[in-house]
Computed example of a mutant assay.
Amino acid sequence: MINEQPRKWQRIVVTGAGGQLGAELAHLPKAEGIEIIALSRSELDVTDSEQCRAVLAQHHPDAIIHCGAYTAVDKAESEPDEAFRVNGAGTRNLAVAAQEAGIKLCYISTDYVFDGKSAVPYNEYDNTNPQTVYGKSKLAGEYAVQTMHNRFFIVRTSWVFGKYGNNFIKTMLKMGTERERLKVVSDQLGSPTYTYDLALFLVELVQTENYGIYHASNTGVCSWHEFAQAIFEESGIKIQVDPCTTDEFPRPAPRPAYSVMDHSAIRSNNLQQLRPWREALQHYLKDSE
């Protein structure tokens, strides 16, 4: 009988490969010792518990980065059952299957689990109080991971942008070619997060045993208005950007006024902080040329 040598590489399954973050993970440069298996919704539907078991048995990963989610924030207000089916029950299915197979699980969550009423950055252990169906459904996923799995990472992030899919930067650049003046909300504060930087952090994180809840965003704070100004400055586009209030642009789902998150878990576990958001913006724009 031949003794099977232990694998020296890390095999990571990524769900939601069609989304912004999942696609970024799928397209990361090949790293020595890392194999990423990126699965789209058609290849792994987390709402099907038996499919979760079958796919994990097929690939035998060391870790899962669960990016697959229902992310239509406004639409979720009129489709709560679907949001909870994917973000709550779907995450539970994956957590149960991963626990049974002894696979680490990293669940991607959101700043929307907080109410946005703080005046100081949210710590990983601050009380959650989601104000939207989307936020509540993502928190349901957090609860499922914490109760169904014993080797988990929960990573909350915010204001995500990257080269795959639509994002705020692409919207601003398009409007910058069509208008001479526009209004952007100035009373919402947060930290933009570059999917490339977040993806590198996640791959590093799942190789550790430092389980728990993390807040991960690019460092620094800005309003959407300040973010828009920086986008146009870095792109060399001349346009008048006027500040406005959230009330001037009502949406079905309320947006958090304050989404800034403290990165205490990253610091306490001696992990690498994500770079300042403006540096990340510069990299994104250069990479998109």
Rank of each mutant, 00 (worst) to 15 (best):
I2C: 11
E4W: 13
E4N: 13
P6H: 10
K8G: 12
Q10P: 07
R11A: 08
R11M: 09
I12Q: 11
I12W: 12
I12P: 06
T15K: 09
Q20T: 14
E24K: 09
L25Q: 05
P29V: 00
G33C: 04
A38K: 03
A38I: 06
R41V: 12
S42L: 06
E43Q: 15
V46D: 02
D48A: 00
S49D: 15
C52Y: 03
V55D: 05
V55W: 07
L56A: 04
I65K: 01
C67S: 10
C67T: 14
A69K: 02
A72I: 01
V73A: 03
A76R: 03
A76N: 08
D81N: 12
D81M: 10
E82I: 12
A89D: 10
G90R: 01
N93Y: 04
L94S: 01
A95Q: 02
V96M: 02
A98N: 06
G102K: 10
D111Y: 07
F114M: 01
S118R: 13
E124C: 12
E124V: 14
Y125D: 15
N127T: 13
N127Q: 14
T128S: 01
N129Q: 11
T132H: 03
T132L: 02
Y134F: 07
K138Y: 04
A140P: 05
A140M: 10
V145N: 09
H149A: 09
R151F: 09
R151N: 14
I154Y: 10
I154F: 09
T157A: 00
G162F: 03
N166M: 11
F168I: 07
T171W: 15
T171D: 14
L173C: 00
G176T: 03
R179T: 08
L182D: 00
L182V: 09
L182R: 04
K183N: 04
V184F: 03
L198I: 00
A199K: 03
L202V: 00
V203C: 04
V203P: 02
V203F: 10
V206D: 04
Q207V: 07
N210H: 13
G212M: 07
H215W: 06
H215S: 05
A216M: 03
T219F: 07
G220Q: 02
V221Q: 15
V221W: 12
S223I: 01
S223R: 02
W224I: 12
W224V: 05
H225W: 15
H225T: 01
A228W: 02
Q229Y: 05
A230N: 09
F232P: 01
F232I: 05
E234K: 14
I237Y: 06
P250Q: 08
R255G: 07
D262R: 12
A265D: 05
I266N: 11
I266P: 05
S268N: 15
N270H: 15
Q272N: 13
P276E: 01
W277R: 01
L281C: 12
L281P: 11
D287A: 15
S288N: 10
